[in-house]
């Protein structure tokens, strides 16, 4: 699905380097690393905001630089770290914004768009929230809405920036389980940055570990191994 080919990322200085890494469809990957190590910068490089210093990232065989903005947003959906809800913005309208790359110049929703929204909302179990305002639901519910917005964008790859921050333990677990299931069922590649080490280990989520200037992929690690790696910072 997506390949990191000997990349170096950072602003003026290189923060992280990687050898060849490939992330597959149908899986959730957790981007783990200490604060300030370059996780956010990596996510921004994936969305074309921060250009790569070296190497290439290929998404479905095309390098990211070769894609136009519209082609890129049809391949990668991004959920930013915290959506606090907006007054007078309904859940269904919020989720529908995920269809933006697919709608006409006026943003009109067609039957097909509504069907996709309905299907995803059903899969995430938030159909009952659709007519509520986004500032009047709980943090956990709002996070599910943000995930729904990313899924209705119908991109092969989804990036979530710390989706589990601000959630209680049960909601974290629920969100991660849902993401693992959806990634498998819909054959998507999901990359999320998180500090929930135990949860990721428990759910056997493969880890993209950022430590001492290097990015490495690990199918399974114990908590001790992760902590050991991270303390090399």
């Amino acid at each position: 699905m997506i390949q990191f080919e000997h990349i170096a990322i950072g602003y003026s200085d290189v923060l992280l380097r990687s050898a060849f890494i490939e992330l597959e469809a149908g899986k959730v990957y957790a981007l783990i690393g200490r604060n300030g190590i370059g996780k956010s910068t990596l996510l921004q490089s994936l969305t074309g905001i921060v250009p790569l210093k070296e190497g290439t990232i290929r998404l479905l065989n095309d390098s990211l630089e070769s894609l136009s903005r519209l082609e890129l947003v049809k391949r990668i959906a991004v959920v930013e770290s915290r959506f606090e809800g907006l007054e007078y913005l309904k859940v269904k309208d919020y989720i529908a914004l995920g269809r933006t790359p697919h709608t006409d110049a006026f943003g009109n929703l067609k039957q097909q768009d509504l069907a996709v929204i309905h299907e995803i909302a059903g899969a995430l179990g938030i159909l009952a929230l659709m007519d509520k305002f986004t500032d009047q639901i709980s943090d956990g519910e709002r996070q599910l809405c943000a995930v729904a917005r990313a899924f209705v964008q119908e991109t092969p790859m989804i990036i979530l920036d710390e989706p589990t921050a601000f959630l209680d333990y049960l909601n974290r677990k629920k969100l991660l389980t849902i993401l693992v299931e959806l990634a498998r069922d819909q054959q998507k590649c999901i990359l999320l940055s998180t500090h929930d080490l135990e949860l990721c280990i428990q759910e056997k989520v493969p880890m993209l570990l950022a430590s001492s200037g290097k990015l490495s992929l690990h199918e399974q690690l114990t908590l001790d191994e992760v902590l050991n790696e991270m303390s090399k910072y």
């Binding site: 947003v73 930013e80 309208d93 933006t100 790359p101 110049a105």
Partner: peptide
Amino acid sequence: LLVKPLNVLVLGEKSASMLGIH
């Protein structure tokens, strides 16, 4: 004519840009 970008802009410029708004 700007209804579509305006509706997306309520999420902020960064999110709007990642939804393909110029």
